[in-house]
Amino acid sequence: MIRQTTMIFLLYLMASCSGGGEKTEATGGIPGARTDLPKTLAEVEKDFASFKGIGPVTSVTLEEAISEEMAAAGKVIFDAKCSACHKTDKRFIGPEPKNVLSRRTPEWVMNMILNPEEMVSKDPIGKLLLVEYNGSPMANQNLTQDEARSVLEYFRTL
């Protein structure tokens, strides 16, 4: 009886602690452990299609025809909430959205808009971008998913 109980105790304990153990490893590691960083942005951009980013968007279907209504709404949002750091056609504080879909998947773009904190700290491309842009973090402007989708549609018109 006692032995059984002890076993159950230990199981409980392991279950409750396993998450913590892993976490400690990740933050407590010594610098050499940072070999997970890809070498260059150019390198990962070559096969960008496999990077969907981290966030709420897992799949985006782009219709062949651009929705003018959606793009117009997206432009209004972009001008109000994004243009302080992004010029449409050239590098500014952050990169230019023109032709972004030749470098990133639509899912990645929307996740970057919706979940930038996690994207710059965990996503392989996001981490490299943070360094490339001198540590300027992408600001979370609290767009809804629909708004982010409109902004993406606007990017297709650039």
Binding site: I2, T5, T6, F9, L13, S16, C17
Partner: peptide, 17 residues
């Protein structure tokens, strides 16, 4: 007795953890 044992074990485990 069992309760005492359990309690001791419990404290021990929590302390260790």
């Amino acid at each position: 007795n069992f309760i005492q044992l359990m309690t001791a074990l419990f404290i021990g485990v929590v302390m260790a953890s």
